[in-house]
Write a protein that binds this DNA or RNA. Structure first.
Lengths: 187, 187
DNA sequence: TCAAAACCTAAGCATACGCTTAGGCACATA
DNA sequence: TATGTGCCTAAGCGTATGCTTAGGTTTTGA
């Protein structure tokens, strides 16, 4: 029939994701995406429709990429200890070179805030809700905790992992490990 | 000699600060600043030299604005309880309308990351270091804590307040209060 | 009263943005 | 090998960005 695409969408998407991850949404231009993805603007628009389209797909690619450690958390049966491991895994995940890129979802929430497109925002909310539900599941493995405690601690853990995401951009390893240790001292 | 400025720099700076606070650095344009500050581009450049100049001064204005609650923390003599009060004060401070603007410093770190201009970055670092030293001072008021514990807990508190800043943009009051309560159960 | 200093207005600079499109080029089918 | 589908190149659209500047206006001290 006709010519085939000379690139694999999932491959160029992975590269786009890294760019958004590092620079955020607004600070990533189509020209930058062109260079990083290695394809022309025409191809970008043909495959993803718009810059926002690339971004939405990038969030999904991010989800897939982080699934390695979320799966691990989901399968863990050792309660709080599994969550602690997730914190450590996340820190490793967020790291690149000496400084961290943080979490792409956290970065985006912080950048776009309430003005974000509803489509984007609902994807981010879904992501966060999923992590929290995993925390809840693991907290439930401790039979001593009542429902109220579990909810409170899950909220605290969400707060802590968000903090870790930002902190990883400005603090050193020792400081970050201190934080994790203290988070898990009393829960 | 000559004509006087028809605006007060500190006044227009306050308005610029709020714009940067809400939108971040890159998403705030000179045209937006023009409207918000109520003065012409010429005047902006005459007074502040560049967009970055406005921003650097805005950070200082922010520092001054938050000084009300940092002073309160500095003067407090009730140890951890004083820090907890600071957390609550900060949440109130970061709030506007129903959703929060977070902390301007946190927002900027998260947006610009390591690529930020050294001038901007050193201002942000100074700000964060100051908060941490206030935490350390208050932790020292508890004679039971050794130096190692104080350092570890200060790092944890920094992590938590950063988290609170981001969390305030996406979670409700109950969730945020849960977090604060749990933070102070752990130290 | 008047010249000079410093202001403000508004037009415009070069560049970058997100996005579109004409036209040539490559390739799977026949 | 001819054909026609659909990809890729690259030029360009309108708009927005950060910043500058000519020229008129206001205020000051002599």
């Amino acid at each position: 029939m006709a010519r085939k695409k000379q690139y694999i969408e999932q491959e160029v998407l992975e590269k786009a994701m890294h760019l958004f991850w590092r620079n955020g949404y607004e600070n990533t231009s189509i020209r930058m995406l062109e260079k990083e993805m290695g394809i022309n603007q025409f191809s970008i628009y043909a495959s993803f429709g718009s810059k926002q389209g690339v971004f939405l797909q990038s969030i999904k690619a991010y989800n897939k990429k982080i699934q390695g450690i979320t799966d691990k958390l989901e399968k863990s049966q050792n309660g709080v200890e599994g969550i602690k491991q997730y914190f450590k895994d996340f820190l490793e995940f967020a790291k690149e070179d000496d400084l961290s890129k943080g979490c792409m979802v956290t970065n985006t929430v912080n950048e776009l805030g309430k003005d974000a497109d509803p489509l984007v925002m609902s994807e981010l909310k879904k992501f966060a809700d999923n992590i929290k539900s995993l925390f809840v599941n693991n907290l439930k493995q401790d039979r001593n905790k009542n429902a109220e405690t579990i909810e409170r601690q899950a909220n605290f853990l969400m707060n802590s992992i968000l903090g870790l995401s930002v902190a990883s951009k400005m603090f050193n390893d020792k400081q970050l490990e201190d934080s994790i240790e203290t988070v898990f001292l009393n829960i």
